[in-house]
Design a protein around this nucleic acid. Sequence first.
RNA 1: GGCGCGGUAGCCAAGCGGUAAGGCGAUGGUCUGCAAAACCGUUAUACGUGGGUUCAAUUCCCACCCGCGCCUCCA
Length: 498
Amino acid sequence: MPLRIVSSLSKRREDFQPIHDKKIGLYVCGLTVYDVCHIGHARTFLAFDAIVRYLRFLGYDVTYVRNFTDVEDKIIKRALQEGVDSRVVSERYIRQAEEDFDALGMIRPSVEPKVTEHMGEIIAFVQALMDKGVAYAVDGDVYYEVNKFSGYGKLSRRTPDELQAGARVDIDERKRNPLDFALWKSGKPGEPVWESPWGLGRPGWHIECSAMATKYLGDHFDIHAGGADLVFPHHENEIAQSEAVLGGDWVKYWLHCGTLNIHHEKMSKSLGNYLTIQDALRRYHPEVLRFFILSFHYGSIIDFSDAFVEEKEQGLERLYHVLQQLDTTLDASLQDPALAAASSLSHSESEMVTRLAELRQAFIEAMNDDFNTAEAAGVLFQTAAVLKKYLLSLEDDTHTIGGGSYFALNQGRAFLKEVGQIFGIFQCSPDLLFQSVLERKLQNVVLPLPEIQQMISDRSQARKTKDWKRADAIRQALADHRILVQDTPEGTTWSVRR
RNA sequence: GGCGCGGUAGCCAAGCGGUAAGGCGAUGGUCUGCAAAACCGUUAUACGUGGGUUCAAUUCCCACCCGCGCCUCCA
């Protein structure tokens, strides 16, 4: 099955056919930089991060554009409050966002255009709308005339009448239609302004995306993505502007990512119910966050809670456990160079190789079905189960494995690593992952590390003398502090309960 | 009020016309001094409710109930 995409415009599965063969232009609406990012932002950008990775995996040459809107009312407001230039505010949060995104392991977009660096293109776009007669200037402001665009409302599936019926904004008498929106806003003293044919001012929200997407991706491009909360008015207005100037269907496929909710409410700065990316990363390994988010389909709403993330954390650790077993077995066998070469496969070995190929195909099929990372994640667990069983079947032998088994297991590990790159997981060694997860959990434990170690060692002494009563008392004392003791053939280890 | 999305096992979540992926939990087992971890097995005659279309519906249509989103800034 080829790649199929459910575009927000059609709401139906469509075969994906790029405008220019193997080249894909993809624009993701980025951030307005007036504050730090929360995990709601992370959800959207991580979802599209995986989509870009997958398109590249399929061999497409993706030009990935994600903007920073660095001129906007809230930035100006914040700058005023702090008594600094708005540039200070926007630059601070751009830097912070880049740090957060890097920490989450996101691939960098091909271009990250900023509004302040594209004033010429933006003004030209507004002028083009004026020339077309779909925009009008009033007192230094320029508005888009919604009535001039017959397709207005096609993305959000509402007619202009329906939109007006629910309007909760005060009517601006200077507008010809209450739905008309600002393309250019005149500036007040103290605000950042640029010269334009309509006087000093700044761009309205929406126009920057039309202008910058067009500059980097051309008049028509393949995929435009963003959060579901941008459908109206942002994307509706982008369509109106762009199609009025450029004609035809501006974007071929629209992708909208579901919001991330907390306690059944959308996480947002205005509600104050957010967890910043930085705070989330203190609690969870980046791969855990990625795996959590990607275990949902990009379009669905995620209800966030620590319990849900911890559930996925456990799942990811189990997957890593298989990887660790694979490493152990394969590394041990590698000591004999002759084993590294693929030799003729026995029946069970070739069955294993076939099964792995099927699973790889299942993963691809899942991703081909509108980037269904949730289903693809399921394939990862199925693969783990298959691999574990095979590993178990090998255990009867002497600890060395034959070339055929080596080949099969290596195939399995290569598959996990390969698709792991699409999810952005399996990028570190199992030990490092376990250690890192443990360290994050340890933050919530009040017992000092030396004390824990002392108690463990005391308990080991007690066990040596078969003083089970004392050993169990210490174990219970540790358990009261959420420390779980594990006795293994290699000695006693411990972990932190979730 | 309008428009949109969703309601699938104890919980989370895929599937969206041919008879229910996966994860967590629970439970039985292997292991263990006992545990834990890990591993193996079991775990939905059933998909919000009521109608309808169809040989066949969780999947399509209608109504209703519930939740969320958007209609103001929002990823």
